[in-house]
Amino acid sequence: MPVVEAVDLAKSFGETQALRGLDLTVERATVLAVLGPNGAGKTTAVRILTTLVRPDSGHATIDGIDVVAEPARVRARIGLTGQYAAVDERLTGRENLELIGRFFRQSGGRARERATELLTGFDLVDAGDRVVKGYSGGMRRRLDIAMSLVARPKVLFLDEPTTGLDPRSRLAMWELIESLVAEGTTTMLTTQYLDEADRLADSIVVVDHGTVIARGTPQELKDRLGGHTVTVDLLPGAGPETPAAVVAALAPHRTAGPVRHSDRHRVVVSVRADTTTPDVVHDLDAAGLVVADVTVERPTLDDVFMGLTGHGASENELTTENGTGTRTGTRSKNKTKTSSGAKP
């Protein structure tokens, strides 16, 4: 039996349909990544599964227990780390952990013992008796996750665990999540980052406009999405180097993904995941085409969405509030440029 099961969940907030028939399951001791842009409904799904919001229709269970009918029993089995570190910054790290322990009816001694274990495990021993106000963003996140694990939940929900973290803390957070998963913690995480889902998840559901548009293992999705994209920059005013000629030259590597021209001097095509930069350069040479630059990229969230829906992920972001629209733009790219000679 899956630990988490959601069937046909729908939820509207006024005119906005946040979820329209979402289905997902998380199997025991696995990680499910819910991947999607801002406003796709990821957080609403987490909030329904953690009993914070009631669905308009559909149903969901945690460990077989209905989230609407028996919220208290569900709450006893889950740990939630929301998008913003929910720590009391007036208290010390230790006090925050002990507070949660007492809320889970642990004895004073047991709550202290568990707090010490978690402070040790999350590298917060030195900071444990300091007030959280002075913690860094990464420390707050770690404490936040530690607080979600006080009662050793059957399923851990992580809502965008690395949003807003600097690259170093992000990597550290990935390692932390990996070690939790290695211990058998069933996890459902939401993310806007394809590389994050790829690295952490056993399976991925891609969500757009409140419904699942694709699901599978990271490998299955990548295969389906045509692996990499090649961006070819043309020299201005060149002779035979038309976009069509470039597409023709790369035909042996191409997959079903669409061809995009951002302007007359740039062509973007989807290619198989085993395509290397030297392959592309070689084929362009063989066709007698001289170009300014060639870039082979792993698919980004934009590419996933382009491949699945024909529109980019950032389209959705334009409609969100100020300041949140740039997140996808800051995603880390696994670029390999011809000049660097690196393998893809």
């Binding site: 978690l118 050793r152 939940p153 058998g184």
Partner: peptide, 20 residues
């Protein structure tokens, strides 16, 4: 920043049904 979970935290994993 290390995030290696030390031995003392290895029971941060889930509880079994019997323990719950």
């Amino acid at each position: 920043m290390t995030t290696q979970l030390s031995d003392s935290a290895t029971d941060s994993g889930p509880v079994t049904d019997a323990e719950f």
